[in-house]
Design a binder for these strands. Sequence first.
DNA 1: AATGTTAATGAAAACCATTTTCAATAAGGT
DNA 2: ACCTTATTGAAAATGGTTTTCATTAACATT
Lengths: 162, 162
Amino acid sequence: MNKGENFHPVWWRNHLRGYGYRITIARQAILDVLSKTEDHLSAEDIFFAVYKKHPNIGLTTVYRTLELFVQMGLIYKFDFGDGRSRYELMGGPKGKEHHHHLVCTECGRVVDYTDFIDDELELLRRTEKELSKKYNFEIKGHLIQFYGLCESCRKKKEKIIE
Amino acid sequence: MNKGENFHPVWWRNHLRGYGYRITIARQAILDVLSKTEDHLSAEDIFFAVYKKHPNIGLTTVYRTLELFVQMGLIYKFDFGDGRSRYELMGGPKGKEHHHHLVCTECGRVVDYTDFIDDELELLRRTEKELSKKYNFEIKGHLIQFYGLCESCRKKKEKIIE
DNA sequence: AATGTTAATGAAAACCATTTTCAATAAGGT
DNA sequence: ACCTTATTGAAAATGGTTTTCATTAACATT
Ligand SMILES: [Mn+2]
Ligand SMILES: [Mn+2]
Ligand SMILES: [Zn+2]
Ligand SMILES: [Zn+2]
């Protein structure tokens, strides 16, 4: 079986239908792209990836579909500070579990990390609890990102200084 | 002494001069606005606040000045997901200490919190250390935000359901 | 398999926060 | 006062995203 090729289409179809949406070529193609990549793609990235097989699908549809999938909870939408949103598959067969990000401020590289230190989740839970009590907030989620310099960017800077 | 009125101008002047920049009316006015508010203002918010006393200062200058202050480390720039950047004073006499945010996804309300930050800081340091070792990142900073529903938005939703 | 209803789509235009351009102005050293 | 040049305001440009609107295609019904 061609790895990733039309990966578990049944799952998407059920997921879509379950929400009362129609199953279209564009939606399947976009999910297909997202299910095959390890990267954090922008709308335009996805548009170009889809374009290879479906040059008739427009960027507008990509935006609309991504918005829909975010609302459905199928994908995550992130902002890493480079002026465009980036998307990542959430649940499903190839979906990633909850994780946080490490972002290089120089080249934009993004690293997922899921190997939380044991206490991290514990502290998060505790913080959420205390915050919701103190500020009367019903906390639904969190965003945690670390910013810095990746290895290659650090080396480049060292060379310049020498 | 009029509270906040031209608060410690000497401090700004030194801070600016220390970086070799000229002290202009626009820059002082913008710092003045930021030093008087507890809110997280957008560039436009700041423009309007400045406009009251200085209707000749343009939005372009506000953007340029904010960008400069961010580079100088005088202010923070945040993105709370409503499509515009928001700014907050960093150091100085009225500047806030490092803190994280609680954001209402319904009305956009933003709450600063500095509580529990001791535990958090400790854990953060440890996490940063582990991450920088494992992924060869030189970590420079972090972004932590909790998302949820503020009290009034929660109550509104409850009423609708009833 | 044909039909009807209506969600979904593509192309173009609009939107809107932010940036760039460029000639005019003013900060601060002499 | 004068000079140099950083800073400024107005207008135009930019670029990611959204809206508009006429056309197309999903899919339930026949
Ligand atoms: Mn990720
Ligand atoms: Mn704040
Ligand atoms: Zn890098
Ligand atoms: Zn709210």
